[in-house]
Amino acid sequence: MSLCEAEKTFILHGVEENFRIDGREREDYRPMEVEIGIISHAFGSARLRLANTDVLVAVKIEVDTPYPEKPSQGKLDFFVDCSANATPDFEGRGGEDLATGISNSLSDAYRSSKAFDLKKLCIMKGQKCWKLLVDILLLECGGNLYDAVSLAVKAALWNTRVPGVKSVGIDGKNVELNVSERLNDCVPLDVSGAPVMVTVCKIGEYCVVDPSAAEEKCSSAALVVAVSQGNITTVLQGSAGSLHPTTLMDSLGLGVEVANQLNIALMETLQSAPPHFDVGFLK
């Protein structure tokens, strides 16, 4: 979308007066809806709608051999696909740069073992481990993609059930793996440390959280902070633009504070969710 100067000035003035275009304050989020278990044959899934940003995440699990230099760790892979539904520019390979950017930042955010412990995905050291394939589908981009994606991924991982391993034995070179087929033997993942990303945009003199698509266009700089249990796991720049050191520190502080609150809100919503209520895209 393209904005004219008058629109940009209007948005700028709104931010200065702490009254954005949609009536929010600088630190307010737009309404969010999250739905889990939406893809029935994936091990875990979630759909998050943040105003008009729509993200669908599915988690699949495979048995794999661990990396030789990390024999007791499982694997976690992110794959982002920008669907052409979001904008015609994503047709074919148009959305690839954005997709690589988001999946790289997610891998960075989840790299620390405090964020996600890969050791829990080990089945047999050096031989077999679980590989989690997190597939993210961007259906609509209405601004603030990083936040929506990180929250959806966290919800999907919370919903994921890893099949229980009944027995694993090694016989010469062959590994015999016996996986339980009963649903009750599935183990949920520990997502208490999974990071939540917050985008902080500098518009004019003030820092704003959860920018809409139009606000992103008027921002002079953007910072994305991934926070896990109050600690920063990744900081990256969302767009070009320089910041004064004090503004940088203030934005980081704001990001951490907001991320902590978001995390609490998300976990509360997930835990109080009603049991399986299949709605999907029909509402």
């Binding site: 960075d108 790299r111 620390s112 405090k114 964020a115 910072l223 896990s228 109050g230 600690n231 920063i232 796991t233 990744t234 900081v235 990256l236 720049q237 320089s242 910041l243 004064h244 050191p245 940088l248 520190m249 980081l252 502080g253 951490v256």
Partner: peptide, 25 residues
């Protein structure tokens, strides 16, 4: 950026507190 004393690029990765980032600055 030297003269303007502005941060043009910032990237952090790991498990850090806000104070750690501040101190490193």
């Amino acid at each position: 950026l030297l003269t303007h004393q502005q941060v043009s690029g910032f990237h952090a990765n790991g498990n850090l507190r806000l104070s750690d980032v501040n101190n490193s600055f």
